[in-house]
Amino acid sequence: MILGVTFTEAGVIGLLVAAVQFGTLLYLAALGETISEKAGVLNLGLEGMMATGAAMGFIVGVETGSPWLGLLGGAVAGAIVSLIHAAAAVGLGADQVVSGLALTFLGLGFADFIGDGYTDDARRARFADVEIPGLDDIPWVGEVIFRHSPVTYLAVIIGVAAWFVLNRTAIGLGLRAVGETASTADAAGHSVVRLRFAAVATGGALAGASGAYLTTYLVGSWSQNLTAGRGWIAVALVIFGAWRVGRVAIGALLFGLTLALKSRLTLFDIEISGQFVDMLPFLLTIAVLVVISFRARNRPSPAPAAIGIAYRREER
């Protein structure tokens, strides 16, 4: 048996490139969810928002011929459907878990509805890889990091911007305050409703962009079940990254590596079943939860304290 045929330099570089590609998909969605949860709004509807973004991204992309407009269309569609969750969970104070789950199925159904008729469409509007001049020739590093679609570079820029806004601006401070103790933030003059709506919509836009990344780059076509549960991996990733923008990015690369590994198990002659690899992101997340709960005696949980709690001024 001559297995391990691609366990070569090219094979390993290919694995790492695919890890960054899948990592981009997960990071965009998980970054949006982090922002939403930082403001105290759990949105379990990632899968639905991603699917809607994927369908809209494909439609806008092929109809205009521009993957950039496709990506933008997906982000706008994701933001719009996320407002349903914002209206229910923030505006009306409905249970965030119930509303988020409803958004999952609503988003999947809506995506199938608008995407009907595009499933066998052979047109494509795909981003080409962009090589960063001067850096892409560095052995290994250049190939793995500096030859990607524009969406990957954009995700890095958005991640840095999100970190800056959350940690270095008044808006970010207000948003985090709203996610910790909404009443105190309210008393301090922050508009709880406005900040939470903005956070949910930002999360929806990023989830939509993540979905559109599937149809404008990673896969290129639209079909039902395209997201295939990756929205749920992104939900787990937020917990794995302990609600921190940078750690979520590292987690995205790690989870992306598990997705990339799954396509190469037989080629690398690794004796682990693909189903087990599918479980890895969730096993890692559970491990992090266990660590967090053990440490909880000494220090506060990294989770925003007001997650899942609706805020209404008169019901304090």
Binding site: G11, V219, A260, S263
Partner: peptide, 24 residues
């Protein structure tokens, strides 16, 4: 060279599995 995906329909995995073979 056979690369198993354990899927009937998951385009993201199937495209990546083909890429892995092409890299080889």
């Amino acid at each position: 060279t056979v690369n198993w995906t354990f899927t009937w329909f998951d385009p993201a995995v199937e495209g990546d599995a083909a890429n892995a073979l092409l890299e080889g």
